[in-house]
Amino acid sequence: MNTSPRRRVLVTGGASGIGAAIADRCRADGLEVVVIDRAGEAIHADLSDPVSTAAALDEALAGGPITSIVNNVGAVFPGSVEEQSLEELEAAWSLNLRSAMQCTQAIIPSMKEAAFGRIVIISSRAALGKELRSAYAATKAGLIGLTRVWSLELGRYGVTANAIGPGPIATALFTGANPEDSPRTRAILDAVPVQRMGTPEDVAHAASYFLDERSGFVTGQTLYVCGGMTVGSVAI
């Protein structure tokens, strides 16, 4: 369990789905949770908009230093390469990638002052490649790149950066992009070696490990929480 007094963690998109499960797990682990989302009990903001994001970050930091962050917010924008619009690509970039950069930059001074920090980024198995996911896969792969760079740049300050790549997780986001009656969806589920969908709590458990003070020698890594789907897809 994390025991530092008043250790605060920011969870973006923490009002529902995986983000809500992570926020709940952080509270159970003894952390003070700050959520930025456009709904629910949170600091309300449109994280796809830099101005709205900046205002929310100012409000979050007004309550005190934040030394941990879970960059969770994201959207899928499904479509083939021929159908994917440039507007969707820009929207995916701003919400999935730019918000992670902006939110992390805002708390780096707090982490440096504390000589401690934990950055967790929710990427996706789709970063390895998935049909109908040009915008989504590109931004989720970009998040893995950010994770690796930040681990190198911030390690000397006691800050770790790690990513989680969920596979099929039972959330509204998954079902919205993967219709239950679609043969493509059925093929995804049949390919899971553990023979079940993942849960938001599965991802939250992985995030808890990366956020823990005792995980300071693990950084720059991507953990696929996917029921074994990536076996054979990722190099040893």
Score class of each variant (00 low, 15 high):
Glu153Leu: 05
Asp202Met: 02
Gly220Glu: 01
Val231Gln: 13
Ile188Trp: 13
Asp190Ala: 15
Leu173Glu: 09
Gln221Tyr: 04
Val218Cys: 14
Ala207Asp: 08
Met197Trp: 10
Thr160His: 12
Glu180Cys: 03
Arg148Gly: 06
Pro168Gly: 04
Gly158Pro: 04
Tyr209His: 14
Leu152Trp: 02
Ala170Gln: 05
Thr219Gln: 05
Gly227Asn: 08
Thr175Val: 01
Thr171Ser: 06
Val159Ile: 15
Ala235Phe: 11
Gly216Glu: 03
Leu173Tyr: 06
Val159Met: 06
Ile164Leu: 10
Arg196Gly: 06
Ala235Leu: 14
Leu152Pro: 01
Met197Thr: 05
Thr199Met: 10
Val218Gln: 11
Val218His: 13
Val231Trp: 11
Phe217Lys: 11
Ser182Tyr: 06
Asn162Val: 00
Val149Phe: 08
Gln195Leu: 11
Gln195Asn: 13
Ser215Leu: 03
Gly227Phe: 08
Arg186Asn: 06
Val218Gly: 10
Gln195Cys: 09
Ser208Gly: 15
Ala161Asn: 03
Ile236Glu: 13
Ala187Thr: 04
Val234Thr: 11
Phe210Val: 00
Pro200Asn: 06
Ala172Lys: 07
Ile236Phe: 13
Ala170Asn: 09
Arg184Ile: 05
Glu213Asn: 14
Ala235Gly: 09
Glu153Ile: 00
Ala163Tyr: 02
Tyr209Lys: 09
Arg184Leu: 09
Arg184Ser: 12
